[in-house]
Computed example of a mutant assay.
Amino acid sequence: MTTERAVPGLQGVPGPGWVVPDLRDPVRTIGRRTFDFDHRVAVMAIVNRTPDSFHDRGATFELDRAVEAAVRAAEQGADWVDIGGVKFAPGPELPAVDEIDRVVPVVRQLAQESDVTISVDTFRPEVAAAAIEAGASVVNDTTGLSDPRMASVVADSDATIVITHSTAPPRQRLPEPPRYDDVTGAIVGFLRERVDRALAAGIPDARIIVDPGHDLNKNTVHTLELTRRLPEVVALGYPVLAAVSNKDFVGESLGRPRGERLAGSLAVATVSAMLGARIVRMHDVVESVDAMRMVEATLGWRAPVEAVHNT
């Protein structure tokens, strides 16, 4: 078991501009790792077994490449790996059995080779159940428990649930562009209702994480606003996941196409951590791990690897 705690003797009191969440159950064991989210920003790496993923365009669709990428991410310092078999965006229907065939072999092999925390990115209860049995300890539901059976599957296991804000039915487009009178208020209300749904199903507070859903059924202006107002989501009291890597709001903010969004992704991940996010979901593992470890070192939560300059 890997445990990350604050470094004794370091002064970890953030200055102005930093948001320190008041979390329910900040110290959590998720799979075979324990995280102190009072003093830790975890990096979730992304491995998609999809032929049409928006970022890698199917680079890890083949099983051997997906497993290799997942193991490599763990070796590069990712705290956990998120494995998906169906992208969020609209597309052709994929039967649940095919989604299981995509994700479960990766989950099973990664669990055998690493103690990294493993999550499955799915909105289907049957896929979640199969992945949990294979070794996943987190269900990352980007539809926010749209299927009420999902809460029961997670409640009957030891898994953690990530509850994400999105408004369209799974894999379908909204009938018109998204509009919000108050985007962050709508997100907080949605998440509060879905958290209540999870609690009612028997999932305890200590196994709930929330995600405001950057770009999911939101335009770039919406997503930038929710990022600025992230402390309102953090105030729910659950660890917040910020899935910001290489998304269109980064590209549109900077005028950068896919493949040229790393700097922008690292910037918004760092801002999200400053505003209280405790997990960032990222494609570029080495750079993202370095960025979050630097955040922790700056806050006094982590000792420098060495401190010899001017000594």
Rank of each mutant, 00 (worst) to 15 (best):
A128Y: 03
R124H: 14
V107E: 00
P105C: 09
T164W: 00
Q112N: 13
E126Y: 13
I118Q: 04
E113A: 15
P125F: 12
T117M: 13
T164M: 15
M150L: 13
S119I: 08
R149P: 00
V116I: 11
D156G: 15
N140A: 12
I132K: 13
D158I: 08
P125T: 12
P125G: 10
P105H: 05
V153H: 05
T117S: 14
V106W: 00
Q109H: 12
D141E: 13
N140R: 12
I161V: 15
S157H: 06
V127W: 00
S137F: 07
V120H: 05
E133T: 13
A159P: 06
R124I: 05
Q112G: 12
L145I: 12
V162S: 03
A130W: 02
S157F: 10
V127G: 03
S146L: 10
S119F: 06
S137E: 05
I163T: 04
E113M: 14
D141P: 10
I163W: 01
T160D: 05
A129G: 07
A111H: 15
S119Y: 09
I118R: 13
V116C: 13
A111S: 14
E113P: 00
S157L: 11
A136E: 02
A159L: 08
R124T: 02
T142N: 04
P148F: 03
D121A: 11
Q109Y: 05
S152E: 15
V106L: 05
A131G: 09
S137I: 06
S119E: 07
A159I: 01
N140I: 06
V104A: 04
T117C: 14
I161W: 00
A129P: 02
V154M: 04
R124A: 10
D156M: 03
G135S: 11
T143S: 14
T117W: 01
A159H: 04
Q109I: 08
R108P: 01
A128S: 07
V120F: 05
S152N: 14
E133K: 15
I161G: 04
S137W: 09
Q112H: 15
A129C: 10
S114M: 12
D115E: 14
A134W: 11
L145Y: 05
D115T: 13
D141L: 11
A111E: 10
G135N: 07
G144W: 02
E126L: 09
T117P: 06
P125D: 10
A129V: 02
T164S: 10
R149V: 07
I161P: 01
M150D: 06
R124G: 01
P105W: 02
P148Y: 06
N140L: 08
G135Q: 09
R149M: 09
I118E: 04
A151D: 07
A136D: 02
S146N: 12
A159M: 13
V107K: 01
V127T: 12
T164F: 00
V107R: 01
A130S: 12
A155H: 03
S157Q: 10
N140E: 11
I163K: 06
P148T: 11
V106E: 00
V162Q: 02
L145M: 13
V138C: 08
T160E: 00
E126C: 11
A129Y: 00
I161T: 03
S119M: 08
D141I: 07
E133V: 09
T160H: 15
